[in-house]
């Protein structure tokens, strides 16, 4: 979901940047959201493709993505871009699913370790 949201944010930002009818043509605001979308894409791909990451990297990526989502949502609000805001809402759901799922996985792993003891 985060990957999908980041792709949507990048796509709409590029569209806004080059389309006069959006009122955002050539603006720094959509340049920012495009870059934020790209960073979110890279972070979420890392989460997906590197399952054996360390605890520090895990925390860094989770916090970075959350910050990206929040700041991009604010940017979308001030850019008056409902698509960006909707995409960030999707990303937030994806983030929650990831965090909750990850916590559940770790809990099971801990239980298994305790069982082995």
């Amino acid at each position: 979901m985060i990957i999908l949201a980041s792709l949507i944010v990048m796509a709409i930002s590029v569209y806004d940047y080059y389309s006069p009818e959006t009122g955002l043509i050539g603006t720094g605001g959509v340049e920012t959201t495009a870059v934020a979308g790209l960073l979110m894409l890279l972070a979420s791909l890392t989460l997906a493709l590197k399952p054996n990451r360390g605890r520090f990297l895990q925390g860094f990526l989770i916090v970075s993505i959350l910050l990206d989502i929040l700041l991009s949502s604010v940017a979308g609000y001030f850019l008056e871009s409902p698509v960006i805001m909707a995409a960030e809402a999707v990303a937030l759901i994806g983030w929650l699913v990831n965090v909750i799922g990850d916590a559940a996985d770790r809990s099971i792993e801990t239980d298994e370790v305790e069982d082995e003891d």
Binding site: G23, T27, V30, T32, F78, L79, E80
Partner: peptide, 8 residues
Amino acid sequence: VQKYGFYM
């Protein structure tokens, strides 16, 4: 007001 694309 619009600056850098952001609407005030």
